[in-house]
Design a protein around this nucleic acid. Sequence first.
DNA 1: CTAATACATAAGTATTTGCTTATATATTCT
DNA 2: AGAATATATAAGCAAATACTTATGTATTAG
Lengths: 109, 109
Amino acid sequence: MADHNSMTQLMKTLADPTRRAVFEAIAQRGEVTVGTLVSGSGVSQPAVSQHLRALKTAGLVAERRAGRHIHYRPDPRGLAPLIDWLGFYGAFWRERFDNLAELLKRMDS
Amino acid sequence: MADHNSMTQLMKTLADPTRRAVFEAIAQRGEVTVGTLVSGSGVSQPAVSQHLRALKTAGLVAERRAGRHIHYRPDPRGLAPLIDWLGFYGAFWRERFDNLAELLKRMDS
DNA sequence: CTAATACATAAGTATTTGCTTATATATTCT
DNA sequence: AGAATATATAAGCAAATACTTATGTATTAG
């Protein structure tokens, strides 16, 4: 089970809309440089770098240096505490809705 | 798909550990009075009331007055934006891991 | 009706946070 | 080596946040 602290950290990391947008941009593109992320975001380059550090600390992204560029890619394992937390309440959800997995399948289509 | 704002609000609401603990206490007990929640939390009664208001605004809990007591119960629909957000990245996860639904099933056992 | 109980709201405050500008570090180009 | 490019870090600041104590509002008990 995901411990309390990692869950709090993950939630706080994803709570900020700008930072979440950065994460989503990384997830959608697969791998992307900081400069590209800065272009897409409405904030300054340092702001993006700070968000990237937070995402990295939370385990949501990983980096790869390529010359002067640093490529960021998503790390799916970072979301584990969140999935775990939802799974912990899985029994609870099933009593009211169907099965969470079923729900996700429906949403996916 | 859950819109950006509701997702941000939900995340911010669940990001605070004290508030999340209040929500978890409500979810576990099914229905509970404020006084009971105050006992379990390490904070003051007003603090708990403020957290309850935030949870209510986020759609995570509902209330029922019974005399001088107010009973709070979880509202599963409040977590929908979160599930939706994860579902939105469902395809992404499946490319790297298995199937998110499978993952949830395994975690459930 | 008054006091007590259960909870909500108001006001104030210290901490956290997300941004900015300025500067540092790492890499490439000439 | 020196200039340019890409990104990170530092410092400062305004806004948000989570708590506190004090007070308000409903409901019940005596």
